[in-house]
Design a binder for these strands. Structure first.
Lengths: 148, 148
DNA sequence: CTACAACAATTGTATATACAAATGTATATT
DNA sequence: AATATACATTTGTATATACAATTGTTGTAG
């Protein structure tokens, strides 16, 4: 993926701008591929993310605030995001008995099952996205990403 | 920005997943910073992008299809995106006389002026986002991004 | 114990995005 | 010329996201 080709410009783009534009372009291909992998399951990347976080809790419930901390996007979504997962039966939500301001969210058996299937699909997508990168390339990327 | 810290997990994450998660995390910080820089001007990143493309046309009009090709996201937005810019007076749209299916979109004087201001603000944001990266780091990133 | 601040989640509203269907125009086929 | 096909954009609809305001609950100071 060459930036100048895509932007169809002859002018040289300053290194910083070029890097960020390139970043955003790659982001699109990445998120498109990942979303496509989840499409058969009818969940968004964010919803998948929440399911994974809940699985990582190993039965312990998570509050909305906890989810939000671990996720990337904003709070206001989280309520409605969980609503969607609830409708699909992948999570379970109840008021926390010790602090009624909080809610306890858990992944259901059904959620765990479907998540396992999604994992397979996601792994395939990841392999495809990263097929041209060596392990060393990825290590390098991670090192560079740490500088952001 | 360390991935394991953010995800609060003890388990080692496979290299590929780790790389992609890290990528998405960086994407959030990047887009947040860039959007924030544009906020005072009341335009989204996409709108800014369109204005830049139009400036790059040097007076030549662009059709929606052209914009769409140069942009990253999807067509359906583009009509409405241009609507917004039109409302703000930053662009001008008329039916193409030689092919009435097409539209000719141009950036206005006002658009050019405001774009110049935005550029300053964006450059500052870029500097901030990339403050920990050397030129060599960025070159490396660009090389790696070419593999996607 | 009352009033007030802080907390956790939800709701409202506006805007953005994705995908499919529809509109209007041009080109090609017969 | 009439019809079908392809093209370029627009519109409809559902969903996603951002930000502010609101609700209900808990903790605390007087």
């Amino acid at each position: 993926m060459n930036v100048e080709d895509i932007l169809k410009t002859k002018k040289e783009i300053p290194l910083k701008s070029r890097t960020l534009i390139h970043f955003l372009l790659v982001n699109n291909t990445v998120t498109e591929a990942l979303s496509a992998a989840l499409k058969p399951y009818g969940v968004s990347l964010q919803q998948f993310n929440v399911l994974r976080i809940l699985r990582g809790q190993n039965g312990k419930p998570a509050s909305l605030a906890t989810l939000n901390e671990r996720m990337v996007s904003k709070m206001s979504n989280t309520t409605r995001l969980v609503d969607k997962l609830l409708l699909k039966g992948y999570v379970d939500r109840k008021v926390c008995p010790s602090n009624r301001r909080k809610v306890e969210i858990r992944i259901t058996k059904e959620g765990l099952d479907i998540l396992k299937e999604m994992d397979r699909s996601m792994t395939k997508a990841e392999d495809l996205i990263l097929k041209n990168l060596s392990d060393q390339d990825m290590e390098q990327l991670n090192t560079l990403f740490n500088k952001f």
